[in-house]
Write a protein that binds this DNA or RNA. Structure first.
Length: 352
DNA sequence: TACACGTGGTC
DNA sequence: TGACCAAGTGT
């Protein structure tokens, strides 16, 4: 684009943004700490979902120091239901990193910001542009889509090598005066107008600049190859109650649903006979299968059959203690993060 | 580079 | 119902 066209592009884009921007709680501030939290929460997550989590998070941890000193279990509980739980783990370790390496002051240079755990190229650029006015394109899914349509870029956005192509194109046109608003404006255009399917080109502020609109090829962009099928996994879950407490298991501290609580789970073949956990086999006098839930992850699908067990009358809790297990009442569970499938299992149990 | 990593919404 | 998508990053 010629220089005058670039100026007009920014004028049209930013005028549109000033009139149509989404009012979001993190758009009331430029504090890097708060922008950081909002960016991490927003990764692969719809804005409407994020809003209540963001408010609770800032209420509970108003400063970076509060986050650096946060209790792990409380943090995870606050994140419960948002998904991608390593994000909150990285957030805390990132906060500690800022305390240690940057004297508690959020770094201002993009390469320093990029070095913080959990901050990748997108988030680093977004924070730099919003909080520090750096002309860095923050390329998320929206910008990939909008930019690919603007310039008819056919590089596969699933490949990490394609980012450079988009970055170079955007670097030329990004507003030098309002780079943060430029990024957010393109995101809003992507989210509200330039949809993946049936984009609303008639009301788009960028239609005069959009190559794919002129050729009618909007829906052919972006080019995206990746699609993986979910693997099917089968489990049996055991509801074992003693008084008002359930036997619960804390998952390992790495991997899927790390540190979250579930009923004891046994992975089985599809349609397998009920297989009581070996540690409990002697104490269980009766069991009954009451139903099944399924839960879809990005890369897996769990099929979980729920089996309600009766213990021997004389059993003591101590007799059943195993590593990383605990007897927890409903009240105890209010302070523990529950895995997604576990929420469904409780509902199934209650409805039975 | 390819895959692990959650959840909820849409068509 | 299933496939795809939503403000991606770590390994």
């Amino acid at each position: 684009m010629k220089q005058t066209k670039i100026e007009n592009f920014n004028k049209d884009l930013l005028n549109w943004y000033d009139l149509n921007k989404k009012l979001l709680p993190w758009r009331m501030t430029l504090e890097p700490y708060k922008i950081w939290i909002s960016e991490i929460m927003s990764q692969q997550t719809q804005v409407e979902t994020v809003i209540p989590y963001y408010k609770r998070f800032i209420d509970k941890y108003p400063t970076l120091r509060d986050l650096a000193e946060a209790d792990d279990a409380e943090l995870l509980k606050l994140w419960e239901g948002l998904g991608y739980y390593s994000r909150v783990r990285n957030l805390k370790s990132g906060a500690q990193q800022v305390m240690n390496e940057f004297g508690g002051k959020f770094p201002t240079q993009i390469n320093e910001i990029r070095s913080i755990k959990g901050i990748g190229p997108y988030s680093a650029a977004s924070i730099s542009s919003i909080s520090f006015n750096a002309p860095e394109p923050a390329i998320d899914g929206n910008l990939f889509r909008v930019t690919s349509r603007l310039f008819e870029i056919s590089d596969d956005i699933s490949k990490s090598s394609s980012r450079k192509i988009f970055d170079e194109k955007l670097r030329v046109i990004i507003s030098q005066d309002r780079p943060g608003d430029f990024n957010q404006a393109l995101m809003d255009v992507g989210a509200t107008i330039c949809h993946p399917k049936s984009p609303k080109c008639d009301v788009c502020p960028l239609k005069d600049y959009c190559q794919s609109f002129q050729t009618g090829n909007q829906e052919n962009f972006p080019v995206k190859s990746k699609k993986i099928k979910q693997k099917q996994l089968y489990y049996q879950a055991f509801a074992i109650k003693l008084g008002d407490k359930y036997l619960m298991v804390k998952r390992p501290s790495a991997g899927l649903l790390a540190d979250m609580w579930t009923f004891p789970l046994v992975e089985v073949e599809e349609n397998a006979e009920v297989t009581l956990p070996s540690e409990l086999r002697n104490q269980i006098v009766k069991f009954e299968e009451i139903g099944e839930i399924s839960h879809i992850f990005s890369h897996l699908k769990w099929h979980v059959r729920l089996i309600v067990c009766q213990l021997e009358d004389v059993i003591t809790k101590d007799g059943l203690m195993i590593h990383n297990q605990a007897w927890l009442s409903e009240k105890d569970l209010k302070t523990r993060a529950l895995a997604g499938p576990q929420i469904k299992l409780f509902k199934l149990l209650k409805n039975n």
